[in-house]
């Protein structure tokens, strides 16, 4: 037993040291901001405000979303399994988290405090929080101007969307996880996206955040458009797509009129400064002509 512990300690001690040796060759001199981001939305926002060069470490969730030239960046883990030693070796100026403040591990707080790393805990659940966060990220990365410009641009895009909001909004349910069925409820950015895209999120009634519902409740909500988020999967091949079949059997208007569609954008469940494109896409789907039958 004791031997086991000693071995584990040795292994735990040696592995980061080895990786550290490999990394030390590419360590750059301390010039300008160096940011470790454990939140994919924050990473995307940093990219969007032109602060790509300031990113020195990312989370595992970031990997598939990064441009090829940045895939080599070291992965420091997420907020639950942060590799503090690796973080220190990267000698960042700021560490980005997205977590409720009282839940941040004390070790992370003391580690950042002792090493003069700025701990930036962000929160992006609504559009308002997106703007605040983008400003914060702009200031820690030295890209305040670009951040301000991106915010202004997004605000104007959103106002265009709000003005061109169609007259007859269809009833929409947006599923983000299928087993069990989890839908977009009230008071979150995806709810705002549905509204901006021109639909009514009928699942708002089911609760805040992302409530779980049964197929029976889904049938009673009777959406005219059913959206299913499958981030990163291949786009739908049309009404015969096997992933759509279980939903087309439901007794809801959306199934009857073949208004069931997959949202496969990898960033569908994130809020970033490029959300305008996503909302445009949602609007196209929500107001598309039905695949079968009459209607709009």
């Amino acid at each position: 037993m004791r031997l086991n512990i000693i071995f584990s300690l040795i292994i735990i001690g040696v592995l980061p040291a080895l990786t550290g040796c490999a990394k030390s060759t590419e360590r750059k001199p301390h010039s300008g901001p160096r940011i470790v981001s454990t939140d994919p939305s924050a990473t995307q926002i940093l990219l969007q405000i032109g602060a790509a060069k300031t990113i020195v470490g990312v989370s595992p969730w970031d990997k598939p979303l990064l441009p090829k030239s940045m895939r080599h960046l070291p992965v420091v883990g997420g907020y639950l399994n942060l590799d503090e030693e690796l973080v220190l070796q990267l000698s960042p100026t700021a560490l980005i988290l997205q977590q409720s403040p009282q839940r941040i591990a004390p070790g992370i707080i003391s580690m950042t405090r002792q090493n003069g790393i700025r701990l930036v805990n962000i929160r992006i659940n609504t559009f308002h929080e997106l703007f605040t966060t983008a400003r914060t990220l702009g200031s820690i990365s030295g890209c305040q101007k670009q951040a301000a410009a991106a915010i202004t641009r997004l605000k104007s895009e959103l106002s265009i969307l709000a003005q061109s909001r169609p007259q007859k909004p269809p009833r929409v349910v947006y599923i983000i996880s299928t087993r069990p069925i989890m839908v977009v409820g009230a008071d979150n950015f995806m709810d705002q996206e549905i509204n901006l895209a021109g639909g009514i999120n009928v699942a708002e009634r089911c609760g805040d955040g992302f409530p779980t519902i049964t197929r029976e409740t889904l049938a009673r909500l009777n959406p005219q458009v059913l959206l299913i988020s499958k981030p990163g999967e291949r786009a739908t091949s049309g009404p015969s797509d096997p992933r759509l079949q279980p939903w087309l059997k439901l007794p809801v208007a959306a199934a009857v009129h073949h208004r069931v569609d997959l949202i496969t954008s990898p960033q569908a469940q994130m809020l970033t400064l490029k959300v305008y494109r996503l909302i445009r896409r949602l609007r196209t789907i929500i107001f598309a002509a039905p695949n079968a039958g009459g209607g709009r």
């Binding site: 069990p180 989890m182 089911c206 609760g207 409530p211 779980t212 519902i213 049964t214 029976e216 409740t217």
Partner: peptide, 11 residues
């Protein structure tokens, strides 16, 4: 569990 989802913030 099917009937009481509303009481428990989801099923």
């Amino acid at each position: 569990v099917r009937c009481t989802g509303a009481y428990f913030n989801g099923e």
